[in-house]
Nucleic acid binder design. Structure first.
Lengths: 131, 131
DNA sequence: TATATATTTTAGTAGAATACTAACATTATG
DNA sequence: CATAATGTTAGTATTCTACTAAAATATATA
């Protein structure tokens, strides 16, 4: 339930949560992240040991803690997206650049940034800042 | 002259540039980064192979490219510091949090953020945004 | 049910980055 | 020259990423 998350782990969490259909299995993760099954297997095992995801009969899902981690990443992502696009950064450009940093950002700082821009409910793509 | 930089490499670049006195030697780097000499040796070699720093008679310095990299990191860092503190984040807190992401940020996006906040010359600590 | 297909897991390998100790080499300084 | 300071090499270890090949386990279909 502790410890930092890597970029690949971040991508896995996002992919898992945002997968088109349920249930999500190992091969879905591998496919989405463009990695082979054994690599996905290790990634998933690491995330399980970090308490972020769980596996039941091959079905992979976020734990409660994992959902919190996901939410924090998304809130950071969309908060920064709003700030970036307000400054004239193209929203797709903003999205890909912010994907490199969102999982490293401090929750409390993001909260303050969000408040300062007026607690908007949605990001430039129309998605909720707090999912 | 290409390729991404890691957090440790980022810290090394900053430490090297901001060292109190010249010349900077390997043991100064090790001391500043709190690592042993052989670890510093490898780090320095990696940065040399990336074209960021150079070594002459044991004296370590940034290359022209390294100075550019340093400048980009600092500009990103201070731009974000201004944005964070404007939202009420404590400046020391902001500094340490931003240190985790500044080296990953896109130069062009930072330029737009900076312009949007009125191209200030100095960060909350009074240091130049463009060193 | 038996065979075939799909999926997962294990084993083995590899490379980049980080970091250490111990030993050895080099360079100053006294 | 000898001692101290500094640098380098060698060897080991851990984490993360990623692969192939092979084995195991499901699941599906004939």
């Amino acid at each position: 339930m502790e410890g930092n998350i890597t970029k690949k782990e971040r991508d896995c969490i996002i992919a898992l949560h945002d997968h088109i259909s349920l249930p999500v299995r190992l091969f879905n993760i591998a496919e989405m992240l463009n990695i082979k099954a054994p690599t996905a297997h290790e990634l998933v095992n690491r995330l399980i040991s970090k308490g972020v995801i769980e596996k039941n009969n091959g079905v992979i899902s976020l734990t409660e803690y994992g959902n919190k981690v996901y939410g924090d990443i998304i809130t950071a992502h969309r908060t920064m997206e709003i700030i970036f696009t307000k400054s004239g950064v193209n929203s797709d450009e903003a999205c890909s650049e912010i994907g490199k940093i969102d999982y490293l950002m401090d929750e409390k700082s993001i909260e303050k940034l969000l408040l300062n821009i007026g607690n908007p409910e949605k990001c430039p793509h129309g998605k909720p800042v707090k999912p």
